[in-house]
Simulated scan of single mutants.
Amino acid sequence: MTNTTPLLRVQSLAKAFGGNKVLQNVSFDIQPGEIVGLLGPNGSGKSTLLNIITGFESADRGVIAYRGNAIQTLPAHRIVEAGIARTFQLPAMPEKMSVMEVAMAASTTHHGFWETLLGTGGVRAAERQAHAKATALLHELLLAHVRDLPASALSGGQKKLLGIVCALMGAPKMVFLDEPTAGVHPNLRNDIVSALKRLNQQGMTLVIVEHDMHFIREVCSRCIVLDRGHIVASCCPDELSSNERVLQAYLGGGAENDAVLEKQA
C-alpha cells in the first residue's frame, strides 16, 4: 500500500499584523522529494509563510504538520531538530570567523548537551564529526577553496552557497531557500542550480522562494503562487504563463505572453 502522507501539510493557516491580513486560509501539501517554487508578487505573504513554517513567527490560526506531527507551536531550533532547515535572502556572515568555522558552528552535534556530559572525548568526537561533514559539504557546494577565508569576505553568491551549507549541517529532510539566486553572478547561479538538483537527487525535499522564472522552470517541478495572502495556483512551471489568476496576481490582468510575466516576476 502506498504511503500518501505528505512530508509537510499546511492547513487553514492565517496571520494578520494589526488590520493587515497577510495570510488567509492557506492550505497546501508538499510531498517527499518534490522541488516546489513558492511564488507571488511583493506583499503576497511569501516571507511570512516561510517564517511561520520555520518557527520565526507564530500563526494566528491553522495547523502545520511535518511527517504527520504538528509543529506550528515549536520554536525554530526544535523545527530544525525535527528535520526542516532554511536559508535567508541576505545571509549575514561574522567578520572574525572563517568559512569552515561558520559551517561547523551550524552543526547540531558540535556543542550538544550529550557531548558536554560525556566530557572532552565526546566533544572532540563531535568536533571531528562536524569537521568531516563541513569539509564534505564545502566541497559539494564548491567552497572548499575558500574554507580558510573570512566568511564576511565571500561574494554574495558564495555567501548564499555557505548559507546552504549551514542549512545542511543538521542533516534536514526538507530545506526552504529564500531567493537563493537573487543578485548572484551567472556562473555561481549555475553552480547553485546544479547543487540543488544534486541534493534533490539524494532525496532532499526543497521549497524555493524565488522571482527568477528561468530558475523556477529549470529547477522546480511544481509552483505554489500566493497573492494577497491567498493561494491562487498550484501548477507546473510551464502552466504559469497561461494561468489567468497568476497573470492577474502579477500584472493586474491584460497580459497574454510569457515574456511579460518573466519581466515582471
Rank of each mutant, 00 (worst) to 15 (best):
L162S: 00
L226V: 11
L50D: 02
L50S: 12
R198C: 15
F215E: 06
H131L: 06
I164Y: 01
A70S: 12
A132H: 07
M174T: 02
S12P: 02
E34Q: 15
R61G: 07
D191K: 09
S58I: 05
A195S: 14
K21P: 08
S241K: 08
L38G: 09
H185D: 15
A134M: 04
L168N: 08
S242M: 02
N187L: 09
K197T: 06
T135C: 03
L138G: 07
R147F: 00
V99G: 05
A130P: 14
R67T: 13
S194A: 13
V26N: 04
V219G: 01
E218A: 07
D238C: 06
L149P: 00
L143N: 09
P237I: 15
V146K: 04
N51T: 08
D212G: 04
A144P: 04
P91C: 05
I224P: 05
R128D: 12
M213L: 15
D148H: 14
A144N: 07
E262W: 05
C166D: 00
V146R: 05
S221W: 03
L142I: 07
L138C: 09
M93Y: 07
E140G: 08
K96L: 12
T181D: 10
G37M: 02
G252V: 10
P32T: 12
F88V: 06
L141K: 04
Q202C: 13
